[in-house]
């Protein structure tokens, strides 16, 4: 079983977010980028586990991005994986990202494609499903557990108020969330090996974006926290009713 893991680079969770060009461009100056945690902690680590325990024969990583995405993909390689592919394209349109991934995957016969349930920057959560559609594969979203036996994949998914268990045949695309695997820290051996693992750059496919971001707005600034003394319940109820208007 060959696994392809989709890796997206996203701003560090503590990065200060700012926009330029009249709020139409995300200003990346001074921003540190990390691997999208859903891709890293869950999709990639589960893929590695599947290789370590037997079912998977190869784990490849793919990212769609320009050269500045390479430190992040090498960091992913430090965690594990046999090789990485950077599709040289710059886009935040989910369709063109998915089309680029599908275009590459189609030619390389992957049995299982794993990605995070969403990227923590644009939160579209749609690339995985689009890749499945473009590859004509089945898709299971929001997996919290993935097991593989032969060609059958068993997936637990969180549903409203509970959990469901699905079984599906390979080939398959799965988007992953918490529970699929435990976060790992790259070890020295992995970090040193990352340098020598193949990182292939392929040209982006000629795909037209179907959407574009026309503007960003910052959320309203959070108001300060009001501390109410524990023995002043009346005041708390009053404020929840008249100020916060939640009761």
């Amino acid at each position: 079983m060959k696994i392809l893991v989709c890796i997206s680079q996203v701003p560090d969770t503590t990065a200060k977010i700012a926009f330029s060009d009249n709020n139409t461009t995300f200003n990346t100056q001074g921003v540190t980028f990390i691997i999208n945690p859903y891709d890293e902690w869950y999709a990639l680590v589960r893929a590695l586990e599947l290789k370590e325990s037997g079912p998977a024969t190869a784990v490849h990583l793919v990212t769609v991005g320009k050269a500045d995405a390479e430190p992040v993909i090498r960091k992913a390689l430090a965690l594990g994986g046999d090789e990485a592919i950077r599709i040289d394209a710059d886009s935040n349109d989910p369709y063109s990202i998915a089309a680029n991934i599908a275009d590459y995957a189609k030619a390389h016969n992957y049995d299982l494609v794993l990605c995070g349930k969403e990227s923590i920057d644009y939160n579209n959560g749609s690339v995985g499903a689009m890749v499945a559609e473009l590859l004509d594969m089945n898709f299971l979203g929001f997996a919290s557990k993935i097991d593989v036996a032969g060609t059958t994949v068993t997936v637990k998914r969180e549903i409203d108020g509970g959990e469901e268990t699905d079984a599906c045949e390979l080939p398959l695309v799965i988007s992953c969330q918490k529970g699929v695997a435990e976060a790992r820290i790259p070890n020295m051996r992995g970090i040193m090996a990352a340098r020598t693992k193949p990182l292939t750059v392929v040209a982006g496919a000629a795909v037209a974006a179907v959407s574009s971001i026309t503007g960003y707005e910052m959320p309203p600034a959070k108001s300060g926290v009001k501390m109410i003394s524990a023995d002043n319940m009346d005041e708390l109820v009053k404020l929840l009713h008249s100020e916060a208007k939640v009761i």
Binding site: R74, K75, A78, I185, P186, N187, M188, I191, M192, A194
Partner: peptide, 10 residues
């Protein structure tokens, strides 16, 4: 270097 920073992040 990038590798040294990776080690530091670990």
């Amino acid at each position: 270097t990038e590798e040294q920073l990776m080690i530091a992040d670990t």
